[in-house]
Design a protein around this nucleic acid. Structure first.
Lengths: 148, 148
DNA sequence: TAGGTAAGTTCCCTTTCGGAACCCTTATGG
DNA sequence: CCATAAGGGTTCCGAAAGGGAACTTACCTA
């Protein structure tokens, strides 16, 4: 199976990864959540080659995760902003940060900590069911495969 | 920056992606959560080349996400199982499934639905703070960057 | 007019990937 | 005792993607 064929897969994991499963894509999304909007800033902060960054931004725009907007005329310049679909990736980003902070230790500790804006205390993310409030684990939930 | 240098990055997003940011890795992890443990089964179900699958399994084992265990002698055969670190990826997988089900529609609907084992009803995953129970969004949480 | 800024594009070379064939160990059947 | 099959890989090739660095285009400023 080729990578580009994943998009039309029935499995949502494959479909999701066809958008954000690339090596660089979630790092670009991270930068957007941090408020970085310009090409050169991203390129410098990420250490990605300009070539690949241009390609990722194009794909993210085509997939509706980012929106390209002119922020000045003469010379015409664009910046990149998260769409609603892109903003909906926040839980995924937070979950990834939490997993890495717990299970992939860095020398000298993590450089990013998640803080509540309200209480200014560190938060502890947990995935729960909106209906019942009970925690979601592989023991309490099963993934039902629809036999088409 | 090269991909292999991400592992030692300070940013947890980069560290996390150094483990699961590959095109195929989360699909392999998905198979493990579905109970698939054998090389040939994975290869057939995923449509990945044997070459790349062998490489990913090696890396996942080296990263402590999977454990390689003999399930028979003569001839010696191994299977792959999730470690605790691997099982801790469940919320990431669920969050990805939920995002894709909502934002990356498939023709004919999603093939995978998340169901509660207890009530047998579909679940709606939400990420909340364990302490306060309030929902985590990019409005309520900020990522504090530690200036080393 | 020289230099600077922002957002890309082009070129070259290396690494990775997809596809298919091959290998090794042991069990099974004729 | 030779052929075939199962399971878990490895090897080889050509194609695609990625890293690095230089170049381009359009404007602005000194």
């Amino acid at each position: 199976m080729k990578w580009t064929e994943l998009q039309t897969e029935a499995c949502p994991v494959a479909r999701g990864l066809s958008v954000v499963g690339d090596r660089w894509t979630m790092l670009v999304v991270r930068e957007c959540f941090f408020g970085i909007r310009r090409f050169d800033q991203m390129q410098e902060r990420l250490g990605i080659t300009r070539h690949v960054l241009a390609d990722r931004l194009r794909k993210l725009e085509a997939d509706g995760v980012l929106r390209r907007e002119a922020y000045q005329q003469r010379p015409l310049r664009h910046e990149y902003r998260l769409t609603d679909k892109g903003k909906a990736l926040y839980p995924l980003l937070v979950t990834l940060i939490d997993w890495a902070n717990t299970h992939v230790p860095a020398e000298g500790g993590s450089s990013v900590t998640l803080m509540s804006r309200e209480t200014d205390e560190p938060i502890q993310p947990v995935l729960v069911d909106a209906r019942t409030g009970s925690q979601i684990t592989h023991r309490t939930v099963r993934a039902r495969t629809r036999e088409a």
